[in-house]
Design a protein around this nucleic acid. Sequence first.
DNA 1: GCAACCAGTTTGAAAATGAAACCAGTTTTA
DNA 2: TAAAACTGGTTTCATTTTCAAACTGGTTGC
Lengths: 172, 172
Amino acid sequence: MQDQHRSGCPINLTVEVVGDKWSLVVLRDMMFGNRRHFRELLNGSMEGIASNILADRLRRLTSEGVISKADDPSHKQKAIYSLTEKGIELVPVFAMIGAWGSKWLPVTEELSIRAKLLAEGGPPLWEEFMEDLRVTHLGAPPDPDRSGPDVRERLQAAYEAVVARQSEAHRS
Amino acid sequence: MQDQHRSGCPINLTVEVVGDKWSLVVLRDMMFGNRRHFRELLNGSMEGIASNILADRLRRLTSEGVISKADDPSHKQKAIYSLTEKGIELVPVFAMIGAWGSKWLPVTEELSIRAKLLAEGGPPLWEEFMEDLRVTHLGAPPDPDRSGPDVRERLQAAYEAVVARQSEAHRS
DNA sequence: GCAACCAGTTTGAAAATGAAACCAGTTTTA
DNA sequence: TAAAACTGGTTTCATTTTCAAACTGGTTGC
């Protein structure tokens, strides 16, 4: 059960878990897109992941404890994938990666609005987002004091607003 | 000069640049280990990178503008690799990845002390580290008001202190 | 009963990775 | 001054990973 690891360095070990071309993209879709089923992740994937690669990544991320898999009671064949606490705590990593990518790489406006808002919100917003994810993915009890859309829904609304504005501008 | 990219999403684009098993490890050694020459990166690599893979990664990171390459005036054959501003600004990403890896993966104490201190120091320490890297890698003028070891040296000293303590404990 | 949907698996070709040997020129050492 | 060691890599070939497409066995809705 011990060391197949290249080293005990936290950077290296993290790279061993999510250092490939697809893992973070799949986790992004689960976290920000609320995609929880295989077909949702497959057909909704903006980057066009292949089904065998998706199956492999879901298997690996599950075995690493970053996500978990459960039967969907509504359908005998449906499996529902959820972020674990370990996966949820990748939120700050996504925030930093999103900020760096937005600053230095050729992002499109509509796809970087979420990253922009998440960076601007800082640690308090990340905490709120993680708390929402615990409710959605872990079944944690929702905070009775809060109301209105959760963080993911707000980010999604901002994305849609940009798309609508672009479509408006394009029409004219 | 346009889209060979899978999408314009900042997460995806970042993954396209550093989403493999070696790029972040090489950048880590440059940033935290101050390894600037090919042989230093090759022989000093804790994880044992192969020379052809190292050559390929240095080429790719250079073409992405994350690092740069220059002749070393002290030796006709020596090349010196430096972080660019784009590379230096990965410091917060490393800080978050290091924190996550330290919390959730089987790190060793001596190799996670740097990540721990960097996380505890927060954004002010990251800023200071980045300013030091600009001096070391970009030739920026050093702040005349500061003195003593720079951030990298302090992290290195902390690492060595842990190793020394372990060696002490082991001897008894 | 049949079409659409479910989570994947299979197949075979292309690309990436990895270990080891190797290279030509440069600098250091005896 | 000749040999040894060092410089940044390249070459070779075997193994592993990726990828697209076709396919599978079962489930659900109409």
